[in-house]
Every structure is written in C-alpha cells, then in structure tokens.
C-alpha cells in the first residue's frame, strides 16, 4: 500500500437536506409521543361504569340527539320561513280583501235597479 490513502468518490449529503431531515425526525418523534400521551388514562378509571351523561352513561345518546346543531338550524330555518310566509300571506289577504271591496262597489248593489245602464252599453236585453 502506498503512503497516500485514497478516499472513495462518494457523493455526500447536502447540509440543508440533513438539517431538514433532522428537524422532521425530531418533530415527528415529538408529535407521536404527544399524541400517545392521549392514551394515558388513569388506571383507576379503566373499566369503570360512568353513569353520568358526561361519562357517556345512560341518557347520553338522548342528550346528544337533542343537541344536534344541524337539526336545530333546520328548525330555526323553518320557523323563519313560517313567519316570513305568514306575513306575506297576510299581506295577500288584505290586498285581496281591499280589491274585492272595490270590485263589489262597482257591481249592482242588491235591490238596485239600473235597467238603462244595461241597455246603454249595447248589451242585448233579455
């Protein structure tokens, strides 16, 4: 062997790539441990019956079902539609009521004789 040692041709890693990988590695490790912390339940609460609503016991499904925001919203929406349409329909009632009264005033009043009016507009008399 000669005195001069030759190092092999190796394409190394860029510093930046190493740095990024390190950061990602540390982050994932940290996050995974942080996530796994969620599994940490006090051992005494394991396999215990929780009869309260908060504990998911009896009646919890009722409270959940009674507080679904989307259903609550739907019903509020129909209430609003009821009020809006109700107001609109009332306007229509009054509008027609008034129109009917005007039209009624144009008609021959009960007991009124207007014989000549019939002949005047060219209609045939019976």
């Amino acid at each position: 062997m000669s005195g001069r040692q030759e190092t092999p041709e190796v394409s190394g890693y860029a510093r930046s790539h190493v740095a990024i990988s390190a950061v990602v590695g540390i982050l994932v490790a940290g996050l995974s441990v942080w996530w796994a912390q969620g599994f940490d339940i006090f051992y005494e609460s394991l396999y215990r019956v929780s009869p309260t609503v908060e504990g998911g016991g009896i009646g919890a499904d009722w409270v959940f079902g009674n507080t679904i925001p989307s259903l609550d919203f739907l019903i509020a929406l129909v209430h609003a539609a009821d009020v809006l349409m109700g107001a609109f329909i009332l306007v229509m009632v009054f509008l027609h009521w008034a129109a009917f009264r005007r039209l009624a005033d144009r008609m021959r009043q009960p007991g009124e004789e207007r014989g000549e009016a019939v002949a005047a507009d060219g209609g045939e008399q019976r």
């Binding site: 009722w62 409270v63 959940f64 079902g65 609550d72 019903i75």
Partner: peptide, 15 residues
C-alpha cells in the same frame, strides 16, 4: 344513532 333526532323531523314536518 339516537332517539331524540327523530323528534326533530316530526317538528320539522309540522312546522
């Protein structure tokens, strides 16, 4: 998966 939600639909229908 809950009983109470059925009531919401009855109310919706009526309103």
């Amino acid at each position: 998966q809950t009983k109470a939600a059925a009531m919401a639909f009855v109310t919706f229908h009526g309103l």
